[in-house]
Nucleic acid binder design. Structure first.
Length: 771
RNA sequence: GGGCGAGUGGUGGAAUGGCAUACACGCUGGACUUAAAAUCCAGUGACCGCAAGGUCGUAAGGGUCCGACUCCCUUCUCGCCCACCA
């Protein structure tokens, strides 16, 4: 351990002081302007890691900085405490998820306190507490009342390792977000939240999020996936069954030479009798079913498929008969699960048609681009030069052009025809303008124990019945055997399952699935505003004072999941009249990851840097400052111990500089006589120093406030310290400008290294907290 | 395939049209010390030069401008997100 300033005593002293004077306990009724600074709350794993240190240090600097500027700052902390790791730990350690979780919360709270973060611990919440999750159940009931929570049977994502269903957002590259196991498909009847009801405003309101990172907005846009086009009704020739297809290229409809259905398409069983090669078709469907999601969605592989022989589809715009195929590259989940194929103007269709020898027809021609014909003359030669035969094509022509072979639309630019054809089809009833979204409703049922019970009862007579509000909370049973096998653990708890129907009072069963934990975190930022409210989910007064969150800080991994769900909940609350704003988070900062040797820190890699060790050897202040000095907050940091040493050296340099100063009598700012200083003849180095003080204050303030450039703010403070040291040693104590400079350094450093700054502030003769 | 971002010394990184490389790390030399640690001082983009000084230099190429790391065009490389999305 290096020798230097006594950080240990100092950190304990000031943490104790802050607690005693309740410096960070924030009243809601202040007349000062408010500032709500929030960092994404952690899952209580027990120990904090470097990612937490970074996230929470950034937040703490912002919170303390705003505090020093005079804002009434809400800076709360809590625990996202439900979730599967607790169940796994319970099995492993032969304890209960609750016991394990609460122990972890205690450890974690201790660790966070050791970092000196300015949290209002009186507002702490844990999502696994009945005081919290009863409001999950309440929200669910409100959604159920409005048809926004509903049960349906559908093909769902299933993680065979976690033994539970997953939301689409929780499937990352075809694997489970927790364990990366390849996700399977299962047909199950489960609970959904109708997030699609809000898709339009979830997209529209992204425009208002001017202070969100562009890439997060882009990721949400991608995820919502709005796509404008047309639905076109093909018909099967003999049965007359209508097969709607979705396309964004209605302009190419005259070039549709076959259609392709997803192998799961319900039409297949409807026209089964007419399919002459049904055995082969069924064999093919079986093969596709066995493919994992990842295999099926591999873009690089050759597209497989099989023609449905004996049936034909009629293209409604020209009544041409075209073959019907099924292929694994057409997905049932998107659009109508059926496409029209235009090989000449879609590269995928082109490759598929080449592979299987399917016909092609050109319906869009390259526009004339040579300067002479741009004026209006289009020669025979240039036309024929452009006029390729389909069989000569080496790839699909996907760019803009002029309609050909398209009946009354010939000669129109395709961009115009796209709209006209859609309108025309709608008029004569063979299609309509349509938009499709990628977003699916949110599957929230989890076949796990450690989560919020879904407040629903199944009665043989009355069907699915919502638990009445007065019966909330539906408590999680405590005596549950967690085995990790055999479906929802609650289903094996007789006293939980068996109940009475709230309507007819006869024997009924409770729903035994629990809610996805992302439900819990979709509104916790609202609960922080009135964390102790027993009678209501939150106090409207508190909400209207504190919300929206002024600054939200967290990892990019939540760009879609948590941030999208939170926006959805906020919009739902607005519709309920509980809040009067559309978006919950005004500014968003997504901090970069903390790596070690270019890799994510993990147990299996054995490259974990333990913040505790650094706190023990150098103190929390050094760790905090080193983390922020290493890089701007959005960038990745490859953690290097050397950064710690340099920061430690710097802080000791500052410490010695303060120790040199004799404690001066307390002078209140504003009561001094600045003019006496000005009148004194001054040497140029003093003038330079005064200039430097104010340049530094300006630079550091702007860097923190405008762009979160903590690294350059710190660099500016370092420069000022260097400047002070450049003064002659014998004059350092006498000159009032030196004291002024040192006080500026201490105050500027305070948000970064709060313990040490408080101590130095005291040494400089101040009786009150620097904050 | 679509979208977002990045590319600057040995290293982390500064500079958003005006002295390229702030600040820090590392390294080299020096002071202090019996010695080490700590601390302090000096130097540190490359090349030429004893020096003064000069030449080159921000992924590559081109352009705009009195002036470009910064703006525009072309290309390359890397990272992230979405993706047989019809």
């Amino acid at each position: 351990m290096p020798s230097g300033y006594p950080f240990k005593e100092i950190e304990i002293k000031w943490q104790e002081y802050w607690r005693k004077v309740r410096l960070f306990n924030t009243p809601s009724d202040s007349v000062r302007p408010k500032y709500y600074c929030l960092e994404m709350f952690p899952y209580p794993s027990g120990r904090i890691h470097m990612g937490h240190v970074r996230n929470y240090t950034i937040g703490d600097v912002v919170a303390r900085f705003k505090m020093m500027q005079g804002f009434n700052v809400l800076h709360p902390m809590g625990f996202d405490a439900f979730g599967q790791p607790a169940e796994n730990a319970a099995i492993k350690n032969k304890t209960s998820p609750a016991t394990w979780t609460y122990k972890c919360i205690d450890w974690m709270r201790q660790e966070l306190k050791k970092m000196g973060f300015s949290y209002d611990w009186e507002r702490e919440i844990s999502t696994c507490s009945p005081d919290y999750y009863r409001w999950n159940q309440w929200i669910f009931l409100k959604m159920f009342e409005r048809g926004l929570a509903y049960k349906k049977s559908s093909s769902v994502n299933w993680c065979p390792s976690c033994l539970t269903t997953l939301a689409n957002e929780e499937v990352i590259n075809g694997g489970c977000w927790r364990c990366a196991t390849a996700v399977e498909k299962k047909d199950l009847e489960k609970w959904y939240l109708k997030i699609t009801e809000y898709q339009e405003c979830l997209l529209e309101d992204l425009k208002e999020l001017k202070h969100w990172p562009e890439r997060v907005v882009a990721m949400q846009e991608n995820w919502l996936g709005k796509s404008v086009g047309a639905e076109i009704y093909f018909r099967e020739k003999t049965t007359g069954e209508v097969i709607p297809v979705f396309t964004t290229r209605a302009d190419t409809i005259f070039g549709a030479t076959y259609i392709v259905l997803a192998p799961e398409h319900p039409m297949i069983s409807k026209i089964k009798q007419q399919i002459s090669n049904i055995e082969d078709v069924e064999k093919y469907i079986e093969i596709v079913k066995k493919e994992t999601r990842l295999q099926r969605e591999d873009v690089a592989k050759t597209k497989t498929g099989i023609e449905l022989k004996g049936v034909k589809a009629i293209n409604p715009v020209n009544n041409e008969e075209v073959p019907i195929w099924i292929a694994d590259y057409v997905l049932m989940e998107y659009g109508t699960g059926a496409i029209m194929a235009v090989p000449t103007h879609d590269q995928r269709d082109f490759l598929f048609a080449k592979e299987h020898g399917l016909p092609m027809k050109i319906v869009i021609e390259k526009p004339e681009t040579s300067p002479s014909t741009a004026l209006g003359t289009d020669t025979e030669q240039s036309r024929s030069a452009r006029n390729q035969k389909p069989e000569e094509l080496t790839e699909a022509y996907e760019a803009e052009g002029i309609q050909v072979n398209s009946g009354q639309f010939d000669g129109l630019p395709n961009t115009v025809a796209k709209e006209k054809i859609a309108v025309w089809m709608e008029e004569i009833g063979i299609g309509k303008k349509e938009e499709k979204w990628r977003l699916r409703d949110w599957l929230i049922s989890r076949q796990r124990y450690w989560g919020t019970p879904i407040p629903v009862i199944y009665c043989d007579k009355c069907g699915t019945v919502a638990v009445p509000e007065v019966d909330l909370p539906i408590l999680l049973s405590e005596n549950v055997e967690i085995t990790g096998k055999g479906g929802s653990p609650l289903s094996r708890v007789k006293e939980f399952v068996e109940t009475k129907c709230p309507k007819c009072k006869t024997k009924a069963r409770r729903e035994t699935d629990t809610m996805a934990t992302f439900f819990d975190s979709s509104w916790y930022f609202l609960r922080f505003c009135s964390p102790k409210n027993k009678g209501e989910i939150f106090d409207k007064k508190d909400i209207s004072y504190w919300m929206p969150v002024d600054q939200y800080i967290g990892g990019i991994e939540h760009a879609v999941l948590h941030l999208l769900y939170s926006r959805f909940f906020t919009k739902f609350f607005k519709d309920l009249g509980l809040v009067d704003f559309k978006e919950p988070f005004r500014h968003l900062l997504t901090q970069g990851m903390v790596l070690k040797d270019g890799e994510v820190m993990s147990k299996s890699r054995g490259n974990i840097v333990d913040p505790d060790e650094i706190i023990k050897d150098y103190g929390a202040d050094t760790l905090r400052l080193a983390m922020l000095f290493a890089a701007p907050p959005e960038a990745e940091i490859d953690w290097n111990e050397r950064g710690i040493e340099g920061t430690w050296r710097f802080l000791n340099r500052v410490w010695r500089m303060v120790e040199e100063q004799q404690p001066a009598p307390v002078k209140r700012s504003g009561l001094g006589k600045p003019e006496t200083r000005v009148q004194k003849p001054e040497d140029s180095s003093v003038l330079d120093l005064k200039r430097k003080i104010h340049q530094t204050i300006k630079k550091a303030t702007e860097d923190i406030e405008n762009s979160f450039q903590f690294n350059t703010a710190i660099a500016a403070i370092m420069e000022l310290v260097n400047e002070i040291y450049a003064q002659k040693p014998e004059t350092r104590v006498e000159k009032p400008e030196i004291k002024e400079a040192i006080e500026a350094v201490v105050r500027l450093l305070a948000p970064f290294v709060p313990h040490m700054s408080e101590e130095m502030w005291e040494k400089l003769g101040h009786k009150e907290s620097i904050f």
